[in-house]
Structure formats: structure tokens, C-alpha cells
Design a protein around this nucleic acid. Structure first.
Lengths: 245, 245
DNA sequence: TCGCCCCCGATTGTATAAAATTCAGTCTGT
DNA sequence: ACAGACTGAATTTTATACAATCGGGGGCGA
């Protein structure tokens, strides 16, 4: 209680979840490490009750494992896990974009299309980068909201916090040079919107899948060291390999 | 504290989640109703601490909504919601069965195939029904475990509790006649296994999709009254309809 | 009738204690 | 020396009491 609590009453748990998640994704804890309640409570200057609830929520999104009477242990986190997160996101959003075809008014689609087309040919600077990110969020949220399935939208939203935090952790890492050559995201968005306009669910899903898969590798490359990635890939080769070679 | 606590220390929250979920799925609470902490604590004979955590977990699986400073309110639950749950399950498990092709040893597949084939032509009685359910669980779990993605397996497992509880609620409703003519589940299982044997991911996914979609309608028919279903369908027509008719 | 304010109930967070469980180290009997 | 039981500290889990805060509803006045 030293400094004034700047956060709202009733939002402690959510803030804790975000804070702990960021710390975890920055790699400050080792996989398999136990997260002690009082330790976390002290570190984030709250009592243990909201910490426990935050851990329950973190266990719900599969970041920690809650072992009965033994507390929370951190699940492993590496390139492989980021890939898996993106895999689930791809599955969910592809289905959403399939469902959303025919559910968005043509004039909205035209508006989106012109926005993305304009941004695709605009000059690439910091402002462009920010604008691109904003429109990316808007497109994904629109698709989730209008897909017709409340639960599917919920599940997509559940992954948003994972994604946001990954993006934040990424920015911490590569605060250095912003090479806007990163990718032509807007062209990918455009492909999605045009497929929706054409009312072609499979084409839209394919465009969405491509869009998400493309971003994964860049994300991993920024988040981890090359040696980490190589080590992970070796491990993947051993554990993920098919039995019938 | 009247009777001795028969449940283990450290498993209160999980039991609470299951218990509350069952009560909710039995329709004993109205959608939008607030779930008061002390009320639940008294009803299930525990203190409020584990109840709070259970509500966080229930919010994590999208059954209740946690409104800041206002507590938990029950989300709506009807045929539509059951369909959406099954939709997500289908998405997840179809992807899993796609990935699992080529990851299961041929001898295991042969064993499964013979088991399902045998069960498909066996006499249908109570024993048959139980055996069929067991093998259903085994098949789905095998696919989730071996799909190569720890997170995908986790998400599938997360939906298992929803499914189990739905099945339990179903049994409460139609404790009357067991008409084993319900369906030829084993034939559907057989189709999945054979597609895996053939190493055809898309065929396997299609078989899985068919298997899950088939079970949905029977589940809904048993869980709700015809008038409820009709009312829900009317509502769906209004809210889910595409904009471009 | 409409808007404002205050009060009440409920949730949220804090603090503390007791009970249960894990785990590591020690002790004992053979 | 070693296997197995025992002990005790550390930690989680549950219970309980209490302060702080938020939201809604009722009363009050214009």
C-alpha cells in the first residue's frame, strides 16, 4: 500500500493476468518453474487472493499448469508453443471467416477494401505501421463479431490476450530497427476482403490461413534467438515426427 | 459442515466447477441471472473462496460472464449454444485428426478398426451402449494426444468437461427408454479410422465432421423440448441471418 | 414526471489463521 | 549400508472476518 493504487477496483485480476503473462513471455521464468503465491503477490504488490484467481485464469488459457496442492508451474514456452498458439488461432479464425461470408453488407466491404488498398500503396513510415496494425485488429474483430457464433467469437477473443502479449514482448525485444519491409500485410488483408466480397468461403479461409501463417515466422524470428529456434526445431523433429516415415 | 467432506483437499474448485456446470445445464437457473457468491457457497457447502475461483474458471470456458463489481451472470444456454459448442469442438477435432494422419502406428489402427468393426455388428444392448461410449472416448482422446500439438490437445480437453456435463444432463432428462437405434456411431468411428489408415487427412476430417454433426441433433433433441427448439430456431433466423439475402 | 443524491447490498481485495499436503532430511531396524 | 517409516518445515488450500468500492434503487425535491 505504499503508492496509490492507480488501477480500478474490480480490475486487479485482469491486470495481474496481463502482467504475469508479459513477464512469462519475456522469458524471466524457466519452464517447469513453480510460481509461488506470496512471491507473485509481493512482486505485483497485491494480496494472494487475486493472484490465485489470476493463476486460475492463466491455467485456463494454457500458460501454466495448476497441480493440486502444489501450485502453479510454468508450461514450456518456445518457438514450438508460439506456432501452436498460431495454429489454433488460424483454425478458429478460418472458420469464422468462412461463416462470415455473406453476413457483411457490401458497402462495408467496399469501404474496407478501399482502406486496405489505399494503405497498401501508401508510403511506409511509423504512422503507416501503426495504421496497419489498427486496421488489422479491426478486420479480425469484425470477422469474429459477425461470424454468427457467439462462442466462436468468444474463443477468438480468448486468444487475443495471448496475441497482444506476444506482440508486446516482441516490441521489447526488437526495439531496434523497424524494418517496414516486414511484410505486405495490407495485401493479405485485401485478399481476405475480396474473397468475402466474392462470397467465396474457401477462398477467404485460404487467404486468412496464409495471412496468419505468414506472420508466425516473423513473430518467432523476432521473439527468439536463432539458436533457440534451431534447438527447438531439432526437438520438434524428434517428438513430432510421424511414425510411418 | 454437517456431513464429513468426502472430497479431497485441493480438489474443491474442480468439483465445484463440475457441480455448478451440471446445475446450469439442467436449466435450474435462468439466463442472465446473477449467481451470488454466498448463495452458491451455502448451496454446495463450501466457503466463498473456492466458489470465486470456480466462477473464474467457468468464465474461462464461457459459461458465465464476470462483470466487474457485479459478479457472475449466467450466459444464455439453449439449442443454439449447444450447436456452437459442437461447432468449436468440430473445428478443433477436425484439425487434430488431419494432423494425426501418419502419426499412429499401423498395428494400432488395425486394432482399432477390428474393435469398431466388431462392435458395429454386435448385438445392441446396455452393455453395447456402454462399450460404444468408452471406445468413443478412447478414439477422441487418442487423436487429441497424438495430433502433435500440445495446445490443440489442451483445447480439445478443455471442451471435454462441457461435453461430459452435457451428456450427463442428457441422461437426467431421458432416463426413460434407451432406444439404441439412436445411431450407428461405430460405423462413423470406423470411417474415421479407415481414413487415418489410408493416410487421407481430408477424408478423415470429413468423417470426423460428419460424426460430430450427427451427434449434435440427437443431443439437442434429448436436451430440450420441441417448443424450445422451435423458439430458438426462430430467434436464430432473426439474428444469424446473412445480410445479403 | 424527471433528475439527483444517498443509502444499501454485493462484490472485490486484504489480512490472518487453521487444516492439509508435499517434500526433504533424519532416524531406525535389520 | 540401506529400505522404509517418521518428523518438521514450507507451501498450498480453505475458512473467516473486515475494509473499500461499486452499482442500483428508492426517496426527495423541482
Amino acid at each position: 500500500m505504499a503508492s496509490g493504487n492507480d488501477i480500478q477496483h474490480g480490475a486487479r485480476r485482469q491486470k495481474l493476468v496481463a502482467d504475469i503473462l508479459l513477464v512469462l513471455f519475456e522469458g524471466k521464468f524457466a519452464p517447469g518453474q513453480r510460481l509461488r503465491l506470496e512471491h507473485l503477490a509481493e512482486q505485483f504488490e497485491v494480496s494472494v487472493t487475486p493472484v490465485r484467481e489470476a493463476l486460475v485464469e492463466l491455467a485456463g488459457i494454457g500458460v501454466v499448469e495448476l497441480q493440486p496442492n502444489r501450485g502453479a508451474v510454468l508450461r514450456s514456452f518456445g518457438p514450438r508453443q508460439v506456432e501452436e498458439i498460431c495454429q489454433v488461432r488460424r483454425i478458429l479464425e478460418c472458420e469464422a471467416v468462412r461463416s462470415v461470408c455473406g453476413r457483411i453488407a457490401p458497402f462495408e466491404l467496399e469501404l474496407l477494401e478501399s482502406q486496405f488498398a489505399e494503405l497498401d500503396t501508401a508510403k511506409r513510415n511509423k504512422r503507416w505501421s501503426q495504421k496497419t496494425r489498427e486496421q488489422d485488429s479491426q478486420l479480425h474483430e469484425l470477422i469474429a463479431e459477425r461470424c454468427g457464433s457467439e462462442r466462436l467469437a468468444y474463443e477468438i477473443g480468448r486468444y487475443k490476450i495471448l496475441f497482444r502479449t506476444l506482440r508486446d514482448a516482441r516490441h521489447m525485444r526488437r526495439s531496434s530497427r523497424d524494418n517496414y519491409a516486414e511484410m505486405n500485410e495490407n495485401a493479405e488483408h485485401l485478399a481476405i476482403v475480396r474473397a468475402m466480397s466474392a462470397g467465396d468461403p474457401e477462398k477467404a479461409a485460404a487467404a486468412m490461413a496464409y495471412h496468419i501463417e505468414t506472420s508466425v515466422q516473423a513473430l518467432i524470428a523476432d521473439l527468439f534467438d536463432p539458436q533457440e529456434i534451431a534447438a527447438d526445431r531439432r526437438e520438434s523433429f524428434l517428438t513430432r515426427q510421424a511414425v510411418s516415415s
